[in-house]
Design a binder for these strands. Sequence first.
DNA 1: AACACGGGGAA
DNA 2: TTCCCAGTGTT
Length: 393
Amino acid sequence: MQEIIDSKAYFSMELLDWYDRSKRDLPWRRYRDPYYIWVSEIMLQQTRVDTVIPYFQRFIERFPSITDLAEAPEEDVLKLWEGLGYYSRARNLQAAARQVVERHGGVVPNDKEAVSALKGVGPYTTGAILSIAYNQPQPAVDGNVMRVLSRYFLIEEDIMKAKTRSIMEELAAELIPHGRASDFNQALMELGALVCTPKSPCCLTCPVMEYCAARLEGVVDELPVKSKAKPPRPEFRFVALVEGSGRNEGRVLIRRRADTGLLARMWELPHALADTSPSEGAGMLDAPAMEQLAVELAKDGISVTPEGAYMDAEHTFSHIHWNLRVFRFGERVGRIAGVAETNGAYSSRGDNSIGTSKNGDASEYLWINQEDMASFAFPKVFLTILNRYFESK
DNA sequence: AACACGGGGAA
DNA sequence: TTCCCAGTGTT
């Protein structure tokens, strides 16, 4: 007798059964606290579970409630996010926490309009919060889900296209078993993370292998179809490691980035886009490079003397590849520093800060020692350079 | 629709 | 080393 199987019902039931048996014990799964779910989902965007776990734990320890997060200084939030990347996630999360306190009495809302109105919460995270925290039958389609569905249902649309995501959302919504939205959506993502992986998927241990269309057709490795992203454009930058003298002895100069754009409001070593790509074998004394940096710093009222090349470093963003050449400089103390002071110096953190307001670009400079590193959030590459410098002193 | 936005892990 | 991963906001 030929048995008629509904491949969708089979998929949902087998997947749920598998999840009940083999779900991971993750910190945000120990309670069904909507705040925990929300924070974890923001951290998990573009970021692996193993990377997120320690960040999540520190974050929740420091900000146990939405109110704690809303009331914290933004620098504290950025510092806890340091190294996790995509820092607008952190800034938006805090802005959204303030929205929740003001508009929803500090409780994560449970209706679609209110959730998706939160800063940093798009279609995926809206579905994740509503389904995982509140067990509402909303789809939560991330990359894992698109990979699983594209294979099981042999969907050959390019998953980079917006249209494909809406197709996937419609399908994912149909698959949710009655009353099991929370577990089912997590199961879908768990399968993508543990079994139906991008490369070398473990089809032989997959709970739904029997009716997986891609496996039956032998095209698992061709799916999902995904158009390639543009490679990052290269940029050569010169970086200044300025060692203080006089009252800044033992400190180095750092600068805070602008309020918007790349690495917004993070701290860094001063640097500039290279006028000329660094001459081949320029060696320790690349005069044009050091001259360019000295001129840029002088514009901000900081006078320096070049000492030589220190190290090279690289950093890749999704759209830019930085080739950094770091030069050491000494701070030149004297009348020039006095000029900076009359140009609007101020002191927000003790007596070692310099602000410049000449051209309204809000550059803020500061002299820090190794212990001060704990108070400022740096992008990874500057953390690496600074740590190396202070460790080798 | 196209681009901006970090960093880590696996091959 | 090189490749891969992929949500949200802005324009």
